[in-house]
Design a protein around this nucleic acid. Structure first.
Length: 499
RNA sequence: GGUCCUUUGGCCGAGUGGCUAGGCAAAGCUCUGCAAAAGCUUCUACAGCGGUUCGAAUCCGCUAGGGACCUCCA
């Protein structure tokens, strides 16, 4: 078995072979920290977190680079062509970097809530102005960019003419040709400066009111929209690296431009495998700023948004995202989230039960079931190898839930499956649920709380022994109101779940 | 207008031409002081029409709906 990934560049699944055996370089487009992250942003970071985790599981040494876009040219919701950071800074009376810091912190908080592993390097655009300027200078020196009024533009036509001959036309990633591009009519800032509409900015001259500005050979300004990723990816991953990830909406123009810039500078195509996650939709429509239909992560976690019927735990969201394939659209809805919440709870509880089951060296009395369990476990690697089919992994894990619960609740014989299979199941589920899918308990209880609950359970037990069901039911009912659910097990013991 | 994707049971969602994914919901049953939990069972869907094929949710064509990108966007 070997890992296969869907490469946007070739539009098909390819066997993954790293450039340097045993090592993987992966770059993922990070957040623009001019505002708070929303549900749509969660998808790539959770998706590529699982990619990162799985590559680690396969034994690769992975350098995972995810940038923070904290500079440059952004557009405000109102579509004014202004630097979003500087504009908001005025509105909120904050320093630009203060604002950037605030949203960076919020982003990190959300990523932690989602239990994502921190990238190996998280470079910022403002920290790499020099690298970006160097890269632009090189592009100019090679003749693929021109300067006008203190701004620098990439000459897409010239690039296309030259590199088409080498099988690297502009549009290679997004599958479009330049001629179609030129037909579009858009009135954009600086459009008249450009020789051709398809050209894009490498460096923009900063108007006086623009707060974020840096000195450059072309005057004071700020870097273009795409150069930071090229510069930082090259710096930390080299002129050619293995994986570049991001949302499908970045495929064009962002990633296309990245390819063009890097190809000119490094004399080779920068990326072997382009991986793109699909969008999260809401009522069938992409969740995005332009559509004014975003649900911020903080709103999701607190339930503080008109569309939300309740708060959703970060693990519910993570589970929700992993239940679909990353290249499919995923429709957001309360029903879907609530289904995920319950499903995850059931899976997690079974997982915890499983880890507490005693194993040994007994033989299976139900060999048919034993075989089935082994098959479900064996299939997991193959599912992940098949372009990270987390949905299939979860489906198999759910097949195991009745087996685990059946043993626990004595609906199945304790030795229905062999001790060896049980041990394997424990190990595999730990690896898959915690290490690869990155799921974790929604809440952890303290030892003190456990003690208090045990006390109440004991009191209730005594009441039940005296057939004082009023008291026993009261304890159960009032604990339930506090979010603690008591369950009388068959063997007379009592278990509880908090949450 | 250009390029491309998509349409799966009440809802979400996976699907490699033949082997009823899975989850949630619903109904019934078992267990139980009552609950809850758990287990078992039931619900066998692939937008429409045509074609290819021994066989199609899966391939091809047409029609209809939805969407994405072409502009900041995960």
């Amino acid at each position: 078995m070997s890992l296969k990934v869907y490469n946007s560049l070739s539009r098909k699944k390819e066997t993954f072979t790293p450039i340097t055996p045993g090592h993987v370089g992966m770059y993922v487009c990070g957040p623009t920290v001019s505002g708070e992250s929303h549900l749509g942003h969660a998808r790539p970071y959770i998706t590529f977190d699982v990619v990162f985790r799985y590559l680690n599981y396969l034994g690769y040494k992975v350098r995972y680079v995810r940038n923070i876009t904290d500079a440059g040219h952004f557009e405000e919701e109102g579509r004014e062509a202004e630097d979003k950071i500087s504009k908001k800074a005025v509105l909120e009376k904050l320093e630009p970097m203060e604002l950037v810091q605030k949203y960076t912190n919020l982003f990190h908080w959300a990523m932690k809530e989602f239990n994502t592993i921190e990238p190996s390097i998280e470079p910022t655009a403002t920290g790499h102005i020099v690298e970006q300027i160097n890269m632009i200078e090189q592009i100019i020196a090679d003749g693929y960019a021109y300067t006008i009024n203190g701004s620098v533009y990439f000459d897409v036509n010239k690039y296309n003419e030259h590199f088409s001959k080498q099988g690297q036309p502009y549009g290679i990633l997004s599958g479009r040709n330049l001629e179609d591009q030129l037909d579009t009519t858009r009135e954009l800032d600086g459009q008249d400066e450009k020789r051709n509409k398809a050209d894009f900015a490498l460096w923009k001259n900063a108007p006086p009111e623009h707060i974020m500005r840096w000195k450059s050979p072309w005057g004071e300004g700020f870097p273009g929209w795409h150069i930071e990723c090229s510069a930082m990816a090259t710096k930390y991953l080299g002129t050619e690296f293995d994986i570049h990830g991001g949302g499908m909406d970045l495929q064009f123009p962002h990633h296309e431009c990245e390819i063009a810039q890097s190809t000119v500078c490094n004399h080779q195509a920068p990326v072997r495998y382009w991986l793109h996650n699909n969008m999260i939709t809401i009522n069938g429509r992409k969740m995005g700023k332009s559509y004014n239909n975003v649900v911020k992560l903080s709103e999701l976690f607190t339930g503080n948004h008109p569309i939300l019927e309740q708060a959703y735990h970060p693990m519910t969201i993570r589970f929700f995202i992993l239940q679909s394939h990353y290249r499919s659209t995923l429709d957001f809805g309360n029903d879907a989230l609530q289904a995920s919440e319950k499903a995850f709870k059931r899976l997690w509880e079974a997982y915890e039960v499983l880890q507490k089951l005693e194993t040994g060296s007994w033989q299976a009395t139900d060999t048919e079931l034993d075989d089935k369990v082994n098959r479900y476990l064996d299939e997991l690697d193959g599912f992940m190898d098949d372009d990270f089919s987390t949905a299939k992994v979860l489906a198999n894990l759910f097949e195991l839930v009745p087996v685990i619960n059946g043993i626990k609740h004595k609906q199945l014989a304790a030795d229905a499956i062999s001790g060896e299979t049980l041990s394997l199941m424990q190990a595999k589920l730990k690896t898959y649920i915690e290490d690869i899918l990155g799921l974790k308990a929604e809440s952890s209880s303290s030892q003190q709380l456990e003690g208090i609950l045990q006390l109440l359970v004991n009191i209730r037990k005594e009441a039940k022994a005296k057939k004082d069901f009023m008291t026993s039911d009261r304890i159960r009912k009032e604990l339930e109101a506090l979010g603690v659910q008591l369950k009388d097990e068959k063997d007379g013991s009592v278990s509880w779940t908090i949450g």
